[in-house]
Amino acid sequence: MADFKLRRSLLYVPGNMPSMLQNIPIFNCDSVIIDLEDAVPLAEKDAARHLVKRFLLNYTDRNKELLVRINPLDSKWGYEDLKVVLPAMPDGIRLPKADTPEIVERLDTLLTEFEEELEVEIGRFGILPSLESALGVINAVGIANSSERIFALAFGAEDYTASMEIERSRGGEELFNARTRVLWAAKAKGIQAVDTIFADVSDMEGLRAETELAKRLGYTGKCLVNPRQIEVVHDVFAPKEHEVEYALQVIEAIKRARQLGTGVIALGGKMVDAPVVKRAARVLRTAYAHGMVDTLIDEEEIHGAQ
């Protein structure tokens, strides 16, 4: 919980477009995923990774998490992507087609080698695996446990529906099982779960509905294809005011409880115990990121002094 990092919005930016890379600092998404994979035509693979490297080296006042989606490790570009981009210090790698734990383990090993070579802390580069096939979804639990670098699991519906030989619908009923399985794996491991992109940039209602569904299920973030989608996604993930108010009451209540030497107390006729406090703490951290409360809550207040 101490390394709580808000990842509501992960914006894809094509790695071969200087005009779009240049604007990365200005958008208020939580993370950016610079894409070297699907967005980049074959003829530009080489140019793009060097462009991305230059951009990252010049982006010194970093104000958001920077991930790079490399090409699959079994393609002829994947390794070269890492080699060129990692010295420019992205925060992590989005690994496409992470179908098995072994693929992620391979990336983990490579990252360790690069970290040694670059003389940076082992574990500096995170991994965000994309579960985007039937196989990946089935292996979700194994993948979640395959590397300590993994901070979240990402579900990729476009490739997933292709692998299932089905169409993706606006309601998303066909994704329900896969979404849930990815979530279980993430929550069991105690990491975040990031929902798939919503491709229709002009359909803000559809985006809102899908994000609300993802949030209800337990996802904490969503991948985006256009900066215009950030506002809706943040709006959905923002705690409602009554939730913040209740969370503040919960924290007050549990502080009183600790003074009384207990870990359980009643608030408005309902029992407040550890899971309730945990949920309240999460609401307040998110509220802080949204500027809804002024101070971050103290870990000690939540868990009590050791």
């Binding site: 604007n23 200005i26 958008f27 208020n28 256009n226 900066p227 215009r228 506002e231």
Partner: peptide, 11 residues
């Protein structure tokens, strides 16, 4: 405007 930069300014 639908330009993300313009929308960011507007926001």
């Amino acid at each position: 405007t639908t330009d993300p930069v313009g929308l960011q300014i507007a926001s």
